[in-house]
Design a protein around this nucleic acid. Sequence first.
DNA 1: AAGCGAAGTTGAACGTGTTCAAGAAGGGTG
DNA 2: CACCCTTCTTGAACACGTTCAACTTCGCTT
Lengths: 256, 256
Amino acid sequence: MAGVTTAAAEPTGPDHPATADALPLTDAGGAGADRPRRARGEQTRQLILETALRLFRERGYAETTMRAIAKEAGVAVGNAYYYFDSKEHLIQGFYDRNQAAHRAAAEHVLATEKNLAPRLRGVLHAGIDVNAPYHSFAATFFKSAAEPSSPLSPFSRESSPAREAAIAIFRDVVEGSAAKLDPELRRELPELLWLGWMGVILFWVYDKSPEQRRTRRLIDGAVPLIDRLVSLSRLRVLRPALRQVLALIDNLRRDD
Amino acid sequence: MAGVTTAAAEPTGPDHPATADALPLTDAGGAGADRPRRARGEQTRQLILETALRLFRERGYAETTMRAIAKEAGVAVGNAYYYFDSKEHLIQGFYDRNQAAHRAAAEHVLATEKNLAPRLRGVLHAGIDVNAPYHSFAATFFKSAAEPSSPLSPFSRESSPAREAAIAIFRDVVEGSAAKLDPELRRELPELLWLGWMGVILFWVYDKSPEQRRTRRLIDGAVPLIDRLVSLSRLRVLRPALRQVLALIDNLRRDD
DNA sequence: AAGCGAAGTTGAACGTGTTCAAGAAGGGTG
DNA sequence: CACCCTTCTTGAACACGTTCAACTTCGCTT
């Protein structure tokens, strides 16, 4: 979510905050009519984003036109493009918000549970909880994220801060747990769990069962399995296999 | 690739052939001016598909307009929509073709190798070989496949025949191998390997390294790993874990 | 106060995928 | 031949995402 690097349109305006839910713009600190100095447009930006996300929720992504967003927000369509490079870029705002909500929803279980399995399970369920209201339109805009060149891709450079924040949650899952495990595995595990989380999201997007129950079952089934495999990885017979996994990961990190 | 089920536009015209590369339409059997009886439009269909795929390759998917395809093919733009529900539907033709090519490219290694690892490795590399020329535009249209509701999704009902054909390759990989393994695992392995193959494709689409070398390294690293894990799964200590994996898969197959 | 320049705002215009009412072609019947 | 009906073909028209040159607003300097 750092400044968009592609090219032209992004104004020099302030980067939208990575995790904060809503900036206290209106009356920052002061008591009365203290006008915000440099954030004149920030208000417009928020208004457009707010309106867009509401319409997305109400009508779906594809069915919401940029003209409708602009009209509903009371601005010209070109104004929306002053703050957001494209319709897809509006989704980034959605990401950030949900990312923060996920973190908040996971807080409790991370603070109380001490074992790896329930910590992981709690974080995963929290993630689904947070996203559940958007399942129908998440599926619609999901394609945007799939395009490798899109800044919305979870692997893109533009998503890097959001990705790091997400990985941080899983780092917390691992580091806060009492489990004894191979140090190298411990180092790699957060990123691996995040990758698994992306897989869960993928599964969830495709999940057509009522209330996405299959995704819940996937989590409930996969977590004990992961827990078991992590424990087993300390066995003598499995050490070479573990080393092999870690070597592969390391090998794939190279960029050439 | 069976008839599109969505709704209106698809004509009652014959389903396009699943695997055949090009129908011998022009002068079927006869010596001279023997006009094909019912396949009047089939020629147009092929012409449009051919033209589209060529332009996709030459200019990329997004850069190729429906108007350009129509013009190049010498038909009206509406005519393309008579045979294909949308621009994306043109891609299905690409799928079918590559699916057949993959099968053909895998034939040799499947006929000569007897062990699981080299069979799998050969099939995976063959798949990348076949797709390599299209890497740049595969990435572009990949998003189409990602949308769950799209008929292009590898999990969609419309893709089911193509999916089955793909899984059949991996069934061949497993059944043709001499490896001794758990019967239930043997039954599930083809589908699991196909799923892994989808993962490899996903990796490949995102792979920006020269000639997608990272994907090659992924294959070369993952195959021995899979081979090892499959062997290890027969160990006493790992039986419960294996059962747990299989139970999870079975649990997730339920549709509710 | 006057002027300047950056920030913010506008809406017509462009090219796109897609639709549709209208028509043409062709072959089977009487 | 005249008639129909199905199959096939057409291109103007529509709504959409996006661009851009012009304009306004506003804080700051002189």
